[in-house]
């Protein structure tokens, strides 16, 4: 390298250009992944809608693609997903925000540094483990209070999913509360408000869009969560809001079909991509909304 002469500079910049092109290709790969997801879902879904009219997909109230009497109404699967996600958020929203307030406003720095990684552990437990916990521990436990609760139901996996999502909501809400300028907090205290009032009337309203973003990302996670509901919620796509009976979510349906030997090119095979497309659009919409809200928070804090 030391004996490089000035006339080698030309070739050196050529190598540089090759390297930077290769690195760009790596970064562009992520765009290709998104394009790949959209294309795979799009083509298989188009194939699906060639055989099933759009109106049946959106207006029929039965989902029975694996039976002789086939119906392709997506609503039972959406209802199942909404039901489990609802129970998850009932747990994750209050717990997440209380933990966030505690970590950012009350906990001493040392406790905070211990608590945060342990919470991350909770979010890192494999979902198949949570599923086992929901099916073999939480459901029997709940049956002690609700005798009519079926072995598969939406309540138990929903609540367990809430525990899994709590750290995500807590950590993102804490970031939002943390970004509230100290001057606002001190202003409120100086005007004679106590800590709790400062939190309720100044800090939470200022951090609102960031906290809302954490809820929405939580919902998006709940909608896409697969194994907990596939294990503990059942495989019966019924249009119901009863938390005690077996249901099926969009994700659980994809798992159910994947486990069988559905041959490529059949309508059953295409259904999982149509359901997947629906799932992708829903989570994407929530993720973009959360992104927008977080941007708003950053602007507001400046």
């Amino acid at each position: 390298m030391d004996n490089r002469k000035p006339d080698l500079l030309q070739s050196r910049s050529l190598t540089e250009r090759w390297i930077s092109a290769a690195l760009f290709a790596c970064a562009a790969m992520s765009v290709a992944v998104t394009a790949g997801i959209i294309m795979v879902l799009f083509f298989e879904t188009v194939e699906f809608f060639r055989q099933v009219p759009l109106s049946e997909f959106f207006f029929d109230t039965q989902w029975t693609p694996l039976f002789d009497q086939k119906h392709f109404g997506i609503w039972p699967l959406i209802a199942g997903t909404a039901l489990t996600s609802f129970f998850a958020m009932i747990v994750a929203v209050p717990m997440g925000i209380l933990i966030a307030i505690f970590l950012s406003e009350f906990a001493p720095e040392r406790l905070r540094r211990i608590l945060k990684p342990v919470l991350e552990v909770l979010a890192g437990v494999p979902t198949v483990v949570y599923g086992y916990f929901a099916l073999t521990f939480v459901t029997p436990l709940l049956q002690g209070f609700i005798p009519e609760l079926a072995g598969f139901n939406s309540l138990s996996p929903g609540l367990v999913m809430g525990i899994m999502i709590t750290p995500i909501v807590a950590s993102l809400s804490e970031d939002a509360i943390y970004s509230v300028p100290a001057s606002l907090r001190e202003g409120a205290i100086a005007l004679g408000s106590n800590r709790l009032r400062a939190i309720r009337h100044v800090i939470l309203p200022t951090a609102f869009s960031g906290i809302a973003a954490s809820f929405i990302l939580g919902i998006s996670r709940a909608i896409g969560e697969t194994m907990i509901v596939a294990i503990a919620a059942g495989q019966q796509p019924v249009l119901t809001l009863d938390p005690r009976v077996p249901i099926e979510t969009m994700t659980a349906y994809i798992v159910q079909v994947s486990l069988g030997d559905t041959p490529h090119g059949t309508l059953e095979y295409n259904t999982i991509f149509a359901v997947g497309a629906m799932l992708f659009v829903m989570t994407l919409a929530f993720n973009l909304l959360a992104l927008y809200l977080r941007r708003k928070l950053l602007k507001g804090a400046l």
Binding site: L41, L217, E225, T251, I254, L279, F280
Partner: peptide
Amino acid sequence: GVPSIIYGL
């Protein structure tokens, strides 16, 4: 933020 099952598809 894309659910893992979508990667499966």
